[in-house]
Each structure stands twice: as C-alpha cells, then as structure tokens.
C-alpha cells in the first residue's frame, strides 16, 4: 500500500539541485528549486533514460544531462517541441523534512 515516508531533511538537497532516493532497483530523483519547492520524478529522462537528477535545475524545470531535453518538474513532461513524460511522485515538505508517498514492500507485507 501507499504511504508517506520521511526520506531526508530539506537541507540535505541543495537549492537548484537534486538528490537520489534508491527505491528497490529504481531511482527517484528529488529536486529542490530556488524557491524551496520540492519535486520527485522517476530518475529517467523520457528520451534516452538519462539520469535527470544530474541535470541543471532552473525555475521549475530540469535539463537532462545527456541530450538537453527540458523536463517540467511538476508534471514530468518534456517541454515542447520535445514530447514525452516521466512518472511523478507525490512529495511534500513538513517541518523541514521531505516526505514522499511510495508503495513500500514493508507495508505490503503488513497489509
């Protein structure tokens, strides 16, 4: 089942930067914009699977490090004229902590 999980302090992610959360075999990229808005995306560019967490963050967008696709952080969609999208995860900040809503194995076992 889905659950809000405390993954880190907001200060663990640099402004205009990203960090990665390992989720099983996958990676989730957690971004922090200059205005402290936080976003979470599947860490793969819709183009050729580039690690979005390594891109340059500007506004509420990130530029993929492999071929410069620009992805909207809030929706995971590529900025036109490119098209494609990557999965988004619900994320919020409470008392300086970043919470991510995830399907977890632990909970599945309990449920």
């Amino acid at each position: 089942m889905k659950q809000w999980i405390d993954i880190a302090a907001l200060s663990d992610v640099p402004r205009l930067g990203a960090r990665v959360v390992a989720h099983g075999e996958d990676e989730i990229a957690v971004f922090r914009a200059a205005d402290d808005a936080v976003f979470a995306l599947h860490n793969r560019c819709p183009h050729r699977n580039g690690p979005l967490s390594e891109g340059i963050v500007h506004g509420h967008r990130v530029t993929c490090p492999l071929h410069n696709w620009v992805i909207e952080l809030d929706r995971g969609e590529a900025v036109a004229p490119d098209s494609g999208s990557t999965a988004c995860y619900p994320v919020r900040v409470e008392n300086g902590r970043i919470l991510l809503e995830l399907e977890t194995a632990a909970e599945a076992a309990h449920g």
Binding site: A8, V13, P14, R19, V21, A22, E27, T104, A105
Partner: peptide
C-alpha cells in the same frame, strides 16, 4: 559527500 550517495534507500 552528499553528491555521491543516495539520500535514502527504500525497498520497493
């Protein structure tokens, strides 16, 4: 150091 390791590991 934070650059080179994941923030957290969560089992799927």
């Amino acid at each position: 150091a934070g650059e080179y390791r994941p923030l957290n590991r969560i089992s799927a």
